[in-house]
Each structure stands twice: as C-alpha cells, then as structure tokens.
Design a protein around this nucleic acid. Structure first.
Lengths: 132, 132
DNA sequence: TTGACATATTCCCATATCGGAATATACTAT
DNA sequence: ATAGTATATTCCGATATGGGAATATGTCAA
C-alpha cells in the first residue's frame, strides 16, 4: 500500500501548504479566478490548476464558469471534520493550569463512546492498568 | 519536487488516519507502550513503530524507556498550529445566520496582517475588483 | 549463556505525489 | 477563420510513501 491519495481525504488535501494558502485566499469571501491565484501564490498556472483539482475532488472548493475564466469559491463545510478532530485537543493549551486529568477522563469517555459506535478492534481491558 | 515528507510538518504527519488514531489513544492521558497500540490499531508492530517514528520526528509524541518497553506520551502542543489554522474557519459553521460578510472582512484583516508579516508575493491590488 | 519478549530498522514493492514543460480545450474578439 | 487569453490535462522525473517480511537491537529472566 502506498501513501493515501491527496484526494482521499480533507486531511490529505490540506497537508499541502499551497493548498492551504488557496483555502485561505478563498476564505476572504470573494470568488477568485485562477490567474489571481497564480499571481498570489507565485507558482505557475498548471500547478495551481492541479491544486484546485485536488481541492475540487475533495469538495473543499467549487468552481463555476464566467466567460473564459473559472471562478472558485470555498466550501468551508468540508473543513469541519478537521475542526472537530482538533477540537478535542483544545483543552491542552487553553486549560493551562487546571484539569488536565479531568480533561483526560472526559476524552476517555468520548473515545470510549466512539469505540462503541464504530466497530473497532477490542478496547483496552482496563484503563491505567500498567502501573509504573 | 516530490510530495513533502510526512515528517516535514504536523499537517503531513496527521494526514495518516492511523497516526491520528495513535494521537487519539495517547490523548486519553495514559502512557502507552507499543504493544498496546498494536493491539488497538490492528496493524503489525513494525508499522506501528514506523508511525511512531514519524510522530516522534514531528514532535507530536515522546517516548521514554521503561524496562524493555517504551512508553509513549502525547505532546499536544505541536497540534496547536493545526488548531490555529482551522480556527479561522469556525465561523463558517457556527454563525449559521449572521455575519458571513462581517466574518469575511475580519479574516481579510487577519490575512492582510499575515501578508505584511511574512514576505509573500504581491497582494491583490484591489479587493472585489472583478465585478460580475 | 540461553531463550523469550519488546521495539526499531532495513529492504522491498506498488503507488502517488509535485512541479515543469508541452499540449489540449475553451472562450473572446476581430 | 485567426489570434489571443484562460484554464485543464498529459507526460515526465525525482522522491517519498505505507505495509509486509526479515532482521537487528535491547532488555529481562533463569
């Protein structure tokens, strides 16, 4: 098995820094045509089109024709899985003082729930079983 | 230029689903040895060790010896860049009704500031310059 | 020492990348 | 039709992957 395709997943799609730049630019709200992005990114047009193709396949952007140019807009919904995943770790840098253990237990519940839902391999028989 | 290494970046490191699973498991708080992770993930030990190697190189996990096993713990700080980046899009799915334009303008400011800071290629000469 | 266990590393292969160059496609204007 | 512009696609090469198999390294126990 080789590395997963960049089009397999939002996580894979945004692993590329220039694709994140494109997403940032489109997050400004305005629709952009490819030439604008080429100027901004400083890489050549075919490369930009390829990145846009990846983002399209993953659903992160959508394009519609406007004459001979193609206007791209962001589809931010597709970023939500990333947000949801990373959100579970927010407590680690917000709760600087308190409740790291508390937070850990909370996450334990969340993950346990996830394990119950998804059909995963067997859960740990006992938490904290390994002293020392 | 080929694809960026998985060890080049946290974004690249977490593009792999099993690495995210490892991160999730370590987020429970307890330190885990490799065998535990092998059982949980359902892939073979060398594969797990390789994933841990990637996560180590990126700084997402750290290990210390305990007898013949190696105990891994999460280093959640390294996830903050991902959190910071994705946070800019939170408004897109929280503010369902109001201020999408407002939010867009706010982001425009943020990105403009970023452009000023980092030495990027030229910014757009005028926002919204292309009517229609 | 010998054997058993835990973990890391090396070698291999099929696969996918990213960018550049060249080319194809599509639309516009004259 | 012809030329020009905008975008996408194809081909290429260097590179990195992720998993399996085999092997190496390290540690414990008797």
């Amino acid at each position: 098995m080789a590395r997963a395709a960049t089009t397999s997943d939002v996580f894979n799609a945004i692993a590329e820094p220039r694709r994140r730049e494109i997403v940032d630019l489109l997050a400004l709200g305005a629709q952009r045509d490819v030439t604008e992005l080429v100027l901004k990114l400083g890489i050549r047009q075919p490369a930009v089109s390829k990145h846009l193709s990846v983002l399209r396949k993953v659903g992160l952007v959508a394009a519609h024709k406007d004459g001979q140019r193609r206007l791209y807009r962001l589809n931010p919904r597709e970023l939500k899985p990333v947000h949801d995943w990373i959100q579970n770790f927010e407590r680690f840098w917000t709760d600087h003082l308190a409740g790291i253990k508390e937070a850990a237990e909370q996450t334990a519940k969340q993950l346990a729930a996830r394990d119950r839902a998804a059909s995963k391999p067997q859960p740990f028989s006992k938490e904290q079983s390994h002293g020392r």
